[in-house]
Every structure is written in C-alpha cells, then in structure tokens.
Design a protein around this nucleic acid. Structure first.
Lengths: 339, 339
DNA sequence: CTGAAAGCGCTTACAG
DNA sequence: CTGAAAGCGCTTACAG
C-alpha cells in the first residue's frame, strides 16, 4: 500500500495525498481532505519512512549511543540500571514527539560517524561520557545535534547535562557531620577522573566548612565497584583509624563497603555509617536500606532529550550547556546519629 | 558524498561502485575494485541505508518491542534489570551481524504494525509476552519473522524461547526438601497466569514426588513484587502455620518477603529459608545473599536472536518453537538446612 | 485548490 | 567486465 495506491483509489494525485498526510490544510480542500483521510484509514496505510527520509534528508531517528562492552571485559553497560532507566525515559519522550530510537553500542568514532551517515539520524544522545574524545570532530563534521551526560568537555554546540557532583558529596558529608561524625572516610580513586574529583572536592568542602581537619589517611582510593567496596570495607576496619562514617561515589560500592566491614566484624550502621550515591532502586532492598544521593535521573534524561529536540527544531537551545541538575540526599537507614 | 560522487571520482559508473561495495567480485575486475575501494576509503564514504532500504525492501533494522508503561501506572519496563540486560545482549549480537536495533515501546497492536511498515523492519523481538494478543494477526499480515520470550502461545511461525519454568520451582522446592524442610510456602498469585502456573506446578510436583502433602493454606496469592512480598512475609509470620521455608517466583518478591518476615521478628535464614527466582545481580548485594533460580538470560537472548537471524536469512529455523531453555539453582545464603 | 515532473541515493535486471 | 535506465515511495518547487 503506497501513496500511489491511495491516490488512485481517491481519484486524486499523489501530491494531494501527501499534503493530506502532512496536514497542509491550506493546500487541500476540506472535502478532498476528508475523502482521502477516510481511504487512508480504511486501508490502514502508513507512510514508508525510508522514502520520506530519503527526500527530506531527515529521518526522525535519534541515535542512542552506549559504549560497547569491550571484547576483553565482561562489562555490559545495559546491565547498569542507570543506563537502562535512562533509555526508558528517553525513548518515551522521543516517541511522544514522533521520533524513533536507534540504540547502538559503539567502540570507536567511526562507528558513530557511519551510524549518522547511514541513517541520517536527526540527533544523538551519548548515555555515558565514555566516548567524548570523538565529540569535537563529530560536531564539526555534522550538523546533527548531540547531547551527552556528565561530560566535563565544554565544546561549542554540545548539549551537556550534568549533575552537581560537588554538591552531592558535600551533602552526604555534611549530613554525617550534622549527625555528630567527624572521622569520615572518602572511598573512591578520584584521581584522573573529573567526575569523581568533583565529588571529592565536595567532601573536602564540607569538612572545611565545618572546621574538621582533612586527613589523607581517610581517603581510600578504591574504584567504586562492589568488589572494591568489599576490600575497602575490610581495610577500613583493619586500619583501626577510628572512622565512624563513610561517604562514597556509588551505591554498589557502598553496599560492598557494608559487606566488607561486616565480614570484618562491624555492625552496620551501629559501628559505621555509610552513604552511597545514585539512589538506585536496590537501595531499598538492602538491609539496612541505603541512605544515598539522588541524581534525579528522570529529570536529567528529560532535560537532555528536550534540549535535543529543541535544537533539532529551532537550531538552538534555551539553556546554555552545561546544564547542572540539582542533587539531593535521600535518607534511609545506613547512616545514624552519634548523639 | 554519494555513490555518484565516488563513481565520478573513479571514472566508472555508479553500478560498478555499487557492485564493489556489495562485494560482487565476479562482476568487477580486481583492478577496478581496488581503485574504487581506495577512493571510498579516502572519502570516508558510507552508503545511505535509507536509499538502500527503499530499493531492497529490507532495512537491516530489527525492532525491539517493549510494553509501554501505561500512563496510569508508574512502571518503566526498562527499569527492570531483566529487560535491559536482554536488550544489551541482543543489541550486541545483532550489531555483530550487521543489523540495527530500533527500540520501541508500544501500547497497542497498531503501534507495532506501523513500526513495521514505516521502516520495513526485517524482524521483531518482543521482550515480554505482554503483547501477545496481537501476534496472530501480525504474523498473518507480515512476512517479517517475529521472536518472543516466554509466550504460551503456539502460533505457527512464531519463534518462541521459553524457560523450563516448571523445573525452576521444582528445583527450588526440591532443594528445600533435601535440606529437611517440609512446611514450604509458595508465594505468587499464579491463577490466570500461564507462566506462574507452570511454576506452581513445579512446586507441587516436588512435594508430590517426595510424599509431602499439599496444603492449600501454604499458598499465598500475592503478586511477585517487592511490596507484596513484604505483605506476604508479614502475613506468613502472623499466620503461625509452622512454615520453615518459602519459594517464590521473583527475586524482588523474595527480598520483600525477607523484609516483611524480619519486620515481624523473624531472623533470616534461621527462622525462614527463602528462595527467589531470576538470579538477578542484586541477589549478591542483599544479606543474606539470595539463593535463586537462574534463567540463563544470556543464552535465552542469544537463542532468540540467532533463530531470528536464521529465519530472516533462510526462511526457517533449525529448532522448532517453543525452545525450552534449562534453568538451574544458584546456591547462596538465604536457604539453610534444618538438619 | 490541484497536478505533472524531478529528484532523494541506491540496486537490479537487461544489454553490450 | 562495464554501463544506461528504470524504479523503490515519498516530497517539493513550479505551473495552472
């Protein structure tokens, strides 16, 4: 069933049918409009978007770029609840605006370029800041708007939606201080990682603001994974530094820390308060339930999507990048008062 | 940069370039081939797949169908770790075979039809059996192969990859029996749900096989969610039926049950053994770590994807549907021996 | 308000 | 081994 078929059935030209479909009411009489629409409904006709893309030089496809799990590692980025929730929110918003979502995992820059050229995608969203090295070139070569999350790059034309990472750790550290803690460990290997460094600085800012001396030995440079959390938890206990509380940069890591400290004999939260980061769903399923920092992923995803659509339609965005989204602390049971 | 441009640069016809790109070595001399390929590389040319789809009546796009969260509910299917992990595995396999993945959440049958007609998708995978009512019609109207998971429908031509659900609950129940339990509760509102009914039958089969009488009062018809798990856990404790162990049909529910039973004063697993279902990542993060039934999602996803590709290429599949995948029990800490 | 024609970028018989 | 031409299904100036 094609435009031509409909046109023949209706006894009009293809062009008229096209105008009806595209709602150009000023170019078709109401009578013709009704007749054609009726036939379209009867036949269950839907336009071939490949053909439309070809003429329009636009596709209504948005590419969602995720880093491919390298063959060497076992990592699957879609197992990360963060990533998949983002996709869900973005897909929904795009769909409601008439767009289609092509999900593509990607190793290197040329993968992205070819996706773009292959399908004439109207825009791209990078779910992770992992592939940013390709962005400057990409933005130069293409007129297609691009959005990314949590990038520290400030490239002209790039839509960049971040969280207030510094505030995040500031909030968790401050929370502990307000509850009487002064010996607070920071667990993350923040060096050479812009995002984690921001969080580290938030930790320091809270300490400083409250006149609590910074102690280098309270910094545990473990990666924010579950496994490393366990190691950190064990080490922290065996170090006997009198630490009463811990802040970290990922819920998974916090859960590991709790496990590690427990295995070494601590009771949580009695002997050690722990605050995570991300406010994942699973925070409710652990015991104690995990106090955490919420990034408000829903709003982040919507913000990036809407700015992208805005840029596709108008050529610009109403908010300059980077857009910094607020964070907040979500109180649960893993951090308690010393008073 | 188009075929035409390349042809001009190379001083050959468009057709020759097309043949080079499509590797039709028998139609182009090696010399021409090399020359054209070199120019293609230099220019970084990638073919426009919209145009190709238009002529070929095939798109290399596979539609991944997920149920849209109804406006009324707050459910986001992509928050479900099961769904997103599947997408990750499927996308990777399809990509490696030269296909593109369009993710589409869908409310009703016509949404699917239009996706299909709009983009000429070469195949579709339904991530959930939620939308099966549309399948008979869809399969009739389209020549596009369709794969689904866990459907109880046996429609001719439908690729259907299931798990051995009955065995799943048989295994968890049997495990408990082997560890001395006889008062084992089953928690799930299985009625009117084919999949849950299968699991229920597995529970009964294990009891029967071991000569343990079936007790209707040990069946708790709660839905397999975290919230309902909590309710079930509380009720189970207050009922005082002497139950020492529980099997259920979802890890989330099992975690809820543990929480509910705990809130009512039970210690887990001392007072109550619990076995979940799905072997989610989070099973390792709870305490006690959750014993569960593994569906082997990786293999399920790969099986469906490969059968789909096979059908696209050859018109048939080497395995008849439904394909039943094996399940296994993963021992952790939430179920203990009474001996 | 309506139509005939050209063109988007590719592929595929059909000739040579 | 190579090419000219038609066609996939749509939209967009351009005429009328």
């Amino acid at each position: 069933m094609t435009l031509k078929d409909i046109a023949e059935k209706a006894g009009v030209s293809m062009m008229t049918v096209s105008n009806v479909i595209n709602g150009k009411t000023e170019r078709v009489s109401a009578k013709t409009m009704d007749k054609v629409n009726q036939i379209i409904d009867e036949c269950g006709y839907t336009p071939n978007l490949n053909a439309r893309s070809l003429t329009n030089k636009t596709s209504n496809i948005i590419g969602l770029i995720i880093p491919a799990d390298s063959p060497s590692s076992d990592e699957n980025f879609l197992e990360n609840p963060y990533t998949s929730t983002m996709i869900g929110i973005i897909e929904r918003e795009l769909r409601q605006n008439g767009y289609f979502v092509m999900v593509r995992s990607v190793f290197k820059g040329t993968d992205i370029t070819s996706l773009l050229q292959n399908w004439n995608v109207d825009g791209m969203i990078f779910l992770n800041p992992t592939l940013q090295e390709y962005l400057p070139q990409l933005l130069k070569n293409s007129s297609c708007p691009i959005a990314i999350f949590d990038s520290h790059l400030e490239i002209d034309g790039l839509i960049n939606v971040c969280s207030n990472d510094r505030k995040g750790l500031y909030l968790s550290t401050k929370y502990l201080i307000n509850h009487g803690h002064t010996r607070i460990a920071f667990i993350a290997d923040y060096e050479n990682n812009h995002l984690l460094t921001e969080r580290y600085l938030g930790y320091r800012q809270a300490l400083e603001e409250c006149g609590i001396p910074y102690r280098p030995e309270y910094i545990y440079p473990f990666s924010p994974s579950y496994e490393d959390g366990i190691k950190a938890g064990k080490k922290l206990v065996s170090d006997c530094l009198g630490i009463t509380a811990v802040v970290t940069t990922a819920d998974i890591c916090a859960i590991g820390i709790i496990e590690g400290a427990r295995l070494s004999g601590y009771r949580i939260p009695i002997d050690l308060s722990v605050i995570g980061y991300d406010n994942l769903k699973i925070d409710q399923y652990t015991s104690p339930k995990l106090t955490s920092i919420s990034q408000n992923m829903q709003q982040k995803a919507l913000m990036a999507t809407r700015l992208l659509l805005e840029k596709i339609r108008t050529g610009q965005t109403s908010l300059p990048s980077p857009v910094i989204m607020d964070v907040e602390i979500v109180e649960r049971q893993s951090a308690i008062s010393l008073f």
